[in-house]
């Protein structure tokens, strides 16, 4: 009886193995169901909401929407954002707080999106970039407002 059981087990095992192998054979002959992309030659288009890094939007007149209110700086859990402000002289003679530098530490950022949600003027957004590797980590500290840019008209 032992021999009969033994042969039965071997038979069962090999048939169940063959069933699995049949599926392997199916995919061997049906390449079209294989879904891998040949990165970096072929790149996937990333969805609009993908969180790659924080960028500041500028229009064609090199104007941004950031008022320097530091809402994003307070919302950030990792102290990724540091906002430096200056006092700007208005045409009517009054002084007004304005953005000087928007410092962004990409090396500290976890892409949690809390700064984007916190921004009252939609000045910053997430970019769909993801290849962030550099040779020197200092390059990851970025200045987001473009040189010479100023606040857009009508943004409070």
């Amino acid at each position: 009886m032992f021999i009969v059981d033994y042969i039965k087990t071997v038979y069962n095992a090999s048939t169940s193995l063959l069933k699995g192998m049949r599926m392997t054979g199916y995919y061997f002959f049906n390449h079209k169901e294989i879904i891998t992309l040949q990165y970096p030659d072929v790149k996937q288009e990333l969805p609009e909401r993908f969180r790659g890094e924080v960028v500041m939007t500028h229009d064609e007149k090199n104007e941004h929407r950031c008022t320097g209110c530091t809402a994003c700086e307070l919302a950030c859990p990792n102290a990724t954002i540091k906002i430096v402000t200056k006092q700007e002289l208005q045409p009517d003679g009054k002084k007004k707080k304005a953005l000087e530098t928007f410092v962004y530490h990409l090396e500290l950022c976890t892409m949690c999106n809390l700064c984007i949600v916190a921004c009252p003027t939609d000045a910053i957004k997430m970019a769909q970039t993801f290849e962030h590797s550099v040779f020197d980590r200092n390059q990851l500290t970025k200045k987001l407002n473009a040189p010479g840019s100023k606040l857009m008209e009508g943004v409070e």
Binding site: L46, P47, R49, F50, R51, M111, L114, V117
Partner: peptide, 21 residues
């Protein structure tokens, strides 16, 4: 997930009071 939440693994989609988007 990527399309709706913006991330593939660490979504941070749930916020107090609902969802982020």
């Amino acid at each position: 997930m990527e399309e709706t939440c913006g991330a593939r693994l660490t979504m941070n989609y749930m916020v107090p009071g609902g969802v982020m988007f």
